[in-house]
Structures are given as structure tokens and as C-alpha cells.
Nucleic acid binder design. Structure first.
Lengths: 293, 293
DNA sequence: GTCATTCGTTGACTTTAGTCAGGGAATTTT
DNA sequence: AAAATTCCCTGACTAAAGTCAACGAATGAC
């Protein structure tokens, strides 16, 4: 990483901070503290549990409680106890709340138009494209990849999404139980591991490593959430799994894949994997690959 | 302007706000209010008049006064009365103040590295390039270029900075009086003109046009403030000066430049200027360029 | 059934940010 | 020389943001 890159980011920050500051100032124009406006945005169309919103905004529980009460008094937010656990609350926007949020959106749009106003059509197009690029890469930079228990909440959510997708994409469908529960144990430390990729804490991908023999590990359960694709996340998961294999003194990794997953095959080839003969009896596998570490 | 462009800006704002928020939070890690940290940054290496800093930060004079006193009590800032007008104060960083600002810079660098950390070299290069593009275009949208009297406050400030820079960069130094005061008259309407570029009202660059003959105008005094460089401002100033030449029925513009100003030469070439033989007796000129409009 | 824990609320704070009116000293205008 | 203006400081205020501890209700663990 060069110093000039750091310089560039600093200077980018300075310029963009002005824009963000202008946005915040414009939000204050509606006579409501910024904290309340932020919460109004964070509550989605369908509402959300209070606790999730509180942690998302990073607020103290007492402070948060007061903000919610203020918005409720203004008739913008409806608070209902969660029927499953009556300690918990669900927040949802009322019709007035939705209207209010639309008004904030309009302010934001005005500001966006002001940004674009001084530019000709070509420059506008370049700005929009560059913003998309920054956004994609900055999102990619916020990804963390770490080992997690395969029976944890995040792992189970990823696996459920993965199996559902395989069932939809494989010609012959997919039965997750074909492998058997014994597989899970093999993907557990110390001999194996299960990695979860997260963006800002939200699980968006996974991959597993299980031992084959003293020299070889197998990569399984590679999956990336649809909304996080196209940003090199799979490549990074693969590299992380290879590092885990190396850490276990394996100098060879193998994997299999189905013919329906064409982009996965291309990714494996690009990462240095070479086709080999069938090495397992996975009924869903059409191709087998190997890479020497 | 399309709705999708506005959507893109909104989504860009969301992502980038996270980064800016992280930066601000990291600044708070040094146990000092953000307002004080901002002032610490705004005071340059050489200090600055209090009034200029106050308006730059957009603060109330009472509030500003308290921030300054707090920093002075911490031994970070030295306040001295302006000898020319003893109502005014000059603020300058002490050695401790410089050290403190360096510590903030380090935090900022850490954050930049964290942004880049998850990316490979190619992605880093793409991110830096896209950031540069966003910065250029967002700054460009805020720039105004307009003719101003050459003896106005903004013009004089730009010229003083320009001459000081030439004196520092030319091997032989630079004497602004060598050209003679007659030059100024030639850069005045209707035959010539003097353009000042401003960002949010702050002068950040200039350029002058003076008549050479019935077909030809000469471009002089091209300067962009160091903090505004690398964002295509010089190119826009040049284009604006060419438009002024065209408006005066000149179909040819000429200019000269010193060998020390290598980036200027590259910019002229890229803008369509071709080297020609010496056309004047400017003792500081090493290269001469011409462009047909 | 008891105990511990979790979720959210409330009261009592502090700090930061910002505003406004007044005033003293220096400077400029008349 | 007087009057007006400019620059900065001070005191008195307000709103927003955030922290902390105590507490009640609901739930889960044993």
C-alpha cells in the first residue's frame, strides 16, 4: 500500500465529508434532531425489532428508548410488543412516519441534484460510475472472514440459504441430508473448519474445510449471498480456506462442483485449480478439482 | 438527470457516511471534542488569522473563542496579536500542537489502511482511481470560474501566491517586477481578462489572457492553489481562457512555461498545445506552446 | 418454584455544540 | 476629535447527545 493511496483517501474524505455534512444539515431543516431522523431511516418498510435497531445505530439503551418515545409521541412510529417474547418491542412506521421519511428522501434527492447540477451529462455519468465503483470496493473492504461454529446461528442461516439455492439450481434437485450429519463434525476444529464472511456483522457467505487424508483437505459449502456477489468475495473465501488448509499442514486441496454452477468453475480455474478424476462419491458432483498449495 | 443517478448518490451517501462516521469516531478516541480537532487541522503549518479560521469552520465567534482558549490552555496553540492590527489574532500550532495533529493524521492513516486492507493491489488501485474521480467531479461541481478585476482582493491574493511559488521553484528565483506593471493593463477587459476560480467562494486559482496580435492571445498567470490540485481545475481554467480568447475573435493562443513546471507542460500537451519556437523574450520561459482554436 | 438473565424504561446526571446579547479595545470613517 | 465599525471575549443561556445506575417485567435455567 503506497503512501499516495493513503493521501488520496484522506483527500477524498475531506471532500466527501462536506457533502455528508450538507446532507445532515439539510435533515435538520425538518426541525427534528438527527438521531430521530436516523432512526426513521433505519426502521425499514416492514418495521424491525427495537434491539436490532439499537445495536445498528450503536446507541445506549436509555437514549434509544427516549428517541423512540419521542417519535411515538409524534405519531410517526408504532411500538408493539413482540408476541413471542413480550420483553421485546417491534418498531414500525405509521402512515405519517412513512410520509415523513419520504420528505427526508426528497431533501436527500435535492442535495443529490445540487451535486450533479454543475456538471454536464458526460461528467454526471462519470460521477455516477465512479461512485458505484467506490461503493462496491468500500463494501468489499468491510468484509470479515472468520471461523465460526458450524452450528451457530450465522452458519445455519448461510447453509440453509446455500441448500435452498442448490435445490433450485441443480437439475436433479438437492437433498441436504444425502451427505449425512457426520459431515458437520468433519468441518469442525481442529481438523476442519467452517468460515463465515460478514459485511458489517451481517453474514453474507460461507465455506468449509474438512480433512481427506494427511496431505489433503477438501473444500465444501462455498456460498456467497446473492446481494454480495460480483465483488470478489468467493475468491477471498477460497483464499482463506486455503490458508486454513496450510495451517493444518495440508499441501493439497480438492473440491467438487456441479455443472450448473458455471461461474464457480471459472472462479476455481482462475484461482489455480486443475481438473482431476473423480475422488469421491458425491452424487451431485460433475467436476473435481485440485490445487497444490 | 435520471432518477437512477439520484438513487446511486443516495446509496453512495449511505456507504460513505459509514466511513466518515468511523473517522470522526476515531478522532474522538483522543479524548478531545471534534470541534477542537477540526480547528487543529484547519490551522496550517504556518498558522492563520483567527477570523479566517472562524469563517472557514463556520462557527459563532463566541464558540470559536472558547475552543481556541481550550486549545491554548492545553498548550497546543499559540495566540499572538497581529502586529498590523492589534484587534486581530493569529493562531499557530506549538510543537506540542504539531505532534498532536500528527497523532490525528496517524489515526486517519490507520483508517485508510483499514479501508484498503481487505483489498488486493488491483482493487486498491481501482478504489483510489474511483475516489479520485469522485473527488474531482464533486469538487468540479462546486467550482465557479469568472472574470474579476486584476486588482481585486482575490486576484491579488492568487497572484501573490503564484509569484511566491515561482520564486521558490525556479532555479534562478523569480522577480515579479521583471514583467512590468504594464502587463496588468493588458490583462484587463475588453482586450484581455483575468479569471479567478473559486470553490465555495474561496479563491483557488487564476489565469489571465492578454492580446498578442489580431489573431493571437497569450495565456499568462495560470495558477491553481496547492490544496485544489489534481482535480482537473487547471484544465477547466485553460478551457475557460480559450473560450475568452474565442470570444475576442482570436483563433490562436500561445503560452510559455518554465522547465521546473513539468506537470503544467504535460497538461498543456494533453490539452492540445504544440511546442513552438520562442515567441517572446520572457527570461523565465524555457518552452513555448501554441494551440489553434 | 426459585434464581439469574435479558429487555426495555426511567431519573439523574455530564459533555458537546451552538446561540445571543453585551462590552472593551483597536481601527476606520466622518 | 467624535462616531461608527470591526474584532474578539465573556456571561448566560438552550438543545442535543450521550452515560450511568437503578428498576420492573418477562423469560430461561436449574
Amino acid at each position: 500500500m503506497t503512501q499516495s493511496a493513503v493521501e488520496r483517501i484522506r483527500s477524498f474524505n475531506r471532500v466527501v465529508t462536506l457533502g455528508v455534512g450538507a446532507l445532515n444539515d439539510s435533515y435538520l431543516g425538518r426541525g427534528r434532531p438527527l438521531g430521530e431522523a436516523r432512526l426513521l431511516f433505519e426502521i425499514g418498510e416492514d418495521g424491525a425489532p427495537a434491539g436490532a435497531l439499537r445495536t445498528a445505530l450503536g446507541l445506549d439503551s436509555g437514549y434509544f428508548s427516549r428517541i423512540v418515545r419521542s417519535l411515538a409521541r409524534q405519531g410517526l412510529v408504532a411500538v408493539t410488543p413482540d408476541p413471542a417474547d413480550r420483553r421485546r418491542r417491534r418498531l414500525a412506521l405509521t402512515a405519517a412516519g412513512r410520509a415523513e421519511r419520504a420528505a427526508y428522501d426528497a431533501l436527500s434527492d435535492d442535495l443529490a441534484r445540487a451535486w450533479l447540477g454543475g456538471l454536464d451529462a458526460g461528467e454526471q455519468a462519470r460521477l455516477v460510475a465512479a461512485m458505484a465503483e467506490v461503493e462496491t470496493l468500500m463494501t468489499a473492504a468491510r468484509v470479515t472472514i472468520a471461523p465460526e461454529p458450524i452450528d451457530g446461528a450465522a452458519a445455519r442461516a448461510c447453509l440453509a440459504a446455500y441448500f435452498a439455492e442448490l435445490a433450485a439450481r441443480f437439475e436433479a434437485g438437492f437433498d441436504p441430508d444425502a451427505g449425512g450429519a457426520a459431515e458437520d463434525a468433519a468441518m469442525t476444529p481442529p481438523d476442519g473448519c467452517f468460515l463465515v464472511a460478514r459485511i458489517d456483522g451481517r453474514p453474507v457467505g460461507c465455506g468449509a474445510l474438512k480433512p481427506l487424508d494427511a496431505q489433503t483437505a477438501e473444500i465444501k459449502r462455498m456460498w456467497v449471498a446473492p446481494e454480495a456477489r460480483g465483488r470478489g468475495l468467493a475468491r477471498r473465501l477460497l483464499a482463506a480456506l486455503e490458508a486454513e488448509a496450510r495451517a493444518r499442514n495440508r499441501h493439497r486441496v480438492r473440491l467438487d462442483t456441479n455443472r450448473a454452477l458455471t461461474t464457480a468453475q471459472a472462479m476455481y480455474r482462475k484461482a489455480g485449480y486443475r481438473p482431476i478424476a473423480r475422488f469421491n462419491d458425491n452424487p451431485y458432483a460433475d467436476f473435481w478439482f485440485e490445487k497444490t498449495l
